[in-house]
Design a binder for these strands. Structure first.
Lengths: 216, 216
DNA sequence: GTGAAAGGTTGCCGATATGGCAAATTCACC
DNA sequence: GGTGAATTTGCCATATCGGCAACCTTTCAC
């Protein structure tokens, strides 16, 4: 009989060893190079070739990982769906979906390092400056939204094809994060705590039905 | 003395005459060609050159109007921000923002022709089939969202830079439309009325704070 | 009308990007 | 250590992106 094949090592081997690790490092190196060069020289003075040179890969390899320089730049922000899904899956079993989103996102932002926060600020700047980056970022958020939607559908038993609830909840979660990031990004003095507070506030507003503010 | 210069004709001259009109026709012809060819041959078997040939313009002119074939295809869907903004501006003075969105979108979908509805269904199919089209469509929705947000901010006196409310309301409006479209698109038998009903229902759910459905 | 200015379209073309294919290299596993 | 699978790379054909200048059409003032 053959054993389960993942029993090789006791500790932290990601999935299948060196191979996967190097792939992540390559991807990270390319993304980091793209991000750094864009900050330095502006998006349109950066070419795939130069990014590849800095990341020490061939241009052909760049294409294996990203389909455009914009994608590489934006992906330097982190925030892959995998970052949130397990925690969300867990949280949604304990509390209502919107509440679960609040927990998961607050937790994520609360535990960022200072460097990561700085990077997010820089990314916000780039995204505001270059519409093409904004579009790519929107696409990334769209992917995350789709994953969240799937979890909501799975958990509540609602069919994505015929019920809007999963769509609306997932959209609300993403919208909360985006709004919080943008407003936070506008105040350079604000730190991690403020960002967390904004995210929670945004989701609370959704829970409250987005009441219209008092007219002036 | 010179008169106001727009008094030329009694009826429907769009803005500044033939020039603008021809531009819109050119844009429409390119978009229609791109859409039609994509339906017939699939996105990746369509080139800018072919689209241009069908639309009877030079490839160079294609570039003057669209920055990619994806953009041309998606823009065939209509739904430019200009379609909604005036009505929304008006409605938001009478009722709360979410309610205004409900009115405006319901009104828009209710008054579509059958041909337009068919086209929307076809576009939904393409967007589901080709992720790159989905991304471009998301970008377009993003533009509309930004315009709506501006109106909300202007009307409520909330500063987009420092307050999340305009972001959240505009996001909810777009999310409602997207969810309604997708769910509607999954049932080929449903007509205009159903779509309108879905949009209204989605916005009602937002107003109600997205209550979690009863667990099963 | 008529002529001049403004705006749109096009051809030309270089810089880049995209992605198939096969050879070369690297890693996993026995 | 050796073998098979996965990754990287070079080569290269096709396609896109846009600057520039010439050409054509509409607008506007007289």
């Amino acid at each position: 009989m053959v054993m389960s094949a993942e029993e090789t090592s006791p500790d932290e081997v990601p999935a299948q060893g060196l191979r996967e690790l190097k792939k992540q490092m390559t991807r990270g190196a390319i993304a980091a190079a793209a991000f750094k060069l864009t900050l330095e020289k502006g998006l349109d003075h950066v070419t795939v070739e130069e990014i590849s040179r800095v990341a020490i890969v061939s241009p052909r390899t760049f294409s294996n990982y990203f389909s455009s320089k914009e994608e590489a730049v934006v992906s330097a922000g982190g925030q892959d769906p995998e970052q949130f899904l397990p925690a969300f899956r867990e949280a949604v079993r304990e509390v209502p979906p919107l509440e679960a989103l609040r927990e998961v996102f607050a937790d994520y932002f609360m535990n960022l390092t200072d460097d990561q926060l700085d990077q997010i600020r820089q990314m916000l700047g780039l995204v505001v400056q270059y519409p093409s980056l904004l579009d790519v970022q929107a696409a990334r958020f769209g992917n995350l939204e789709a994953e969240l939607r799937g979890v909501v559908a799975e958990h509540t038993g609602a069919d994505e094809e015929t019920e809007m609830y999963p769509w609306l909840v997932a959209s609300a979660g993403i919208a909360a994060v985006r709004a919080a990031l943008r407003v936070w990004g506008a105040s350079p003095a604000d730190g991690r705590d403020k960002l967390v507070k904004l995210v929670q506030e945004a989701l609370s507003l959704f829970s409250a039905g987005l009441p219209a503010p008092a007219p002036r």
